[in-house]
Lab assay of single mutants.
Amino acid sequence: MEVRTIKVFTTVDNINLHTQVVDMSMTYGQQFGPTYLDGADVTKIKPHNSHEGKTFYVLPNDDTLRVEAFEYYHTTDPSFLGRYMSALNHTKKWKYPQVNGLTSIKWADNNCYLATALLTLQQIELKFNPPALQDAYYRARAGEAANFCALILAYCNKTVGELGDVRETMSYLFQHANLDSCKRVLNVVCKTCGQQQTTLKGVEAVMYMGTLSYEQFKKGVQIPCTCGKQATKYLVQQESPFVMMSAPPAQYELKHGTFTCASEYTGNYQCGHYKHITSKETLYCIDGALLTKSSEYKGPITDVFYKENSYTTTIK
């Protein structure tokens, strides 16, 4: 009895394709271990004539594949690729409408935090270190965002349907971005203890939790000093293409032309909904596939993004 075979390709990165001759009487799992086709788990399936010449994702289970996976995804987590594939199996079914010149995501599976993050990423200057993220990001900007969303979920250790947080998501993504040249110098002034300067680099240099107003941050924000008295913390120097200011959701007025974009969060910790506000020729609110415009805006804002380049204080 002759062994019926077909020729397929296996890959971990969709760049390096490895030619395989597979036995049609055995499952993919018996031949390769966990195997995925377009995100779908085909591990328990036997090869079919229609699979001839198709590319299958496999887990990096030998040295060659491990090197290829690390170079593309910059992670050695053995569960990463499987999590990416199972997320992709959902995100490829989502709709990605162009809204006001940006790629958004039609609401499904509690994905409003991903839509808000995706919209924000198209408006701030950011370059990702893992080629996987950078490639998928370019495709997302062009309207094909399924891979990018699935990668975000995998890097953030999230599953489809789980509630997510924009600030946490951005923080994970910033860790995989090139923020080497970003720098922030802060000064804390206390009447009792004097003053202390701190220099922050990388992710810490672009994120701040405690106030939404970048102007206020430049002037000074009140913080408790270690001595128990009130101290003032203010920005001395900022070198970065953008800054992200966050605070627990509270009524906040966004003035046209003073910011790049913002995240609105309605609801409580267990259950809520994100919308995205962007400042173009007027203010726009993007909620999944829905767009509304207004000249002014007041609502429960939790993150505001500002364009920056270089700032030095005039406070002496």
Rank of each mutant, 00 (worst) to 15 (best):
A142D: 14
H48L: 12
I315A: 15
Q195D: 07
G288P: 02
T103R: 06
K191M: 08
L59V: 11
M170E: 01
S79L: 14
T282Y: 11
Q216C: 09
M26V: 11
E68I: 03
H51A: 07
K218W: 02
C190L: 03
F56K: 03
D62F: 00
T192G: 12
S171V: 10
S279E: 05
G267Y: 15
S79V: 13
E239C: 10
D38W: 09
I105D: 00
Y274R: 05
A108W: 04
Y137A: 08
N89Q: 13
S279K: 02
H48S: 13
N147R: 10
E239L: 09
G194D: 01
G82W: 12
K233P: 02
Y306S: 02
A247N: 04
T5S: 10
L65A: 09
L153H: 01
Q175I: 05
C227Y: 00
C156Q: 11
E162I: 00
P224L: 14
G210P: 04
H256C: 14
E308S: 08
K280L: 13
A140F: 11
V160L: 07
P34T: 13
N268L: 02
Y28L: 13
S104V: 08
E215P: 04
G194T: 03
T11L: 05
M24T: 10
H273T: 01
G257D: 07
S295P: 08
A40K: 12
D63P: 06
G101L: 02
Y252C: 10
H48T: 14
N16Y: 06
E168V: 15
Y138K: 14
C182E: 02
I45K: 13
I286K: 00
K275S: 08
S86A: 13
Y57H: 11
K275P: 03
V99K: 15
H176Y: 14
M244P: 02
L283I: 15
D13Y: 09
Y72T: 06
L37Q: 12
M170P: 02
G210N: 01
I105H: 06
A117I: 10
T116Y: 06
L59S: 14
R139E: 13
L65T: 14
I124D: 00
V221I: 11
K275D: 00
Y28P: 07
V185T: 08
R66Y: 08
N16L: 08
E296S: 13
L118E: 07
G267C: 14
E168C: 14
H48E: 14
P97Y: 08
Y284C: 15
V206W: 00
K201M: 11
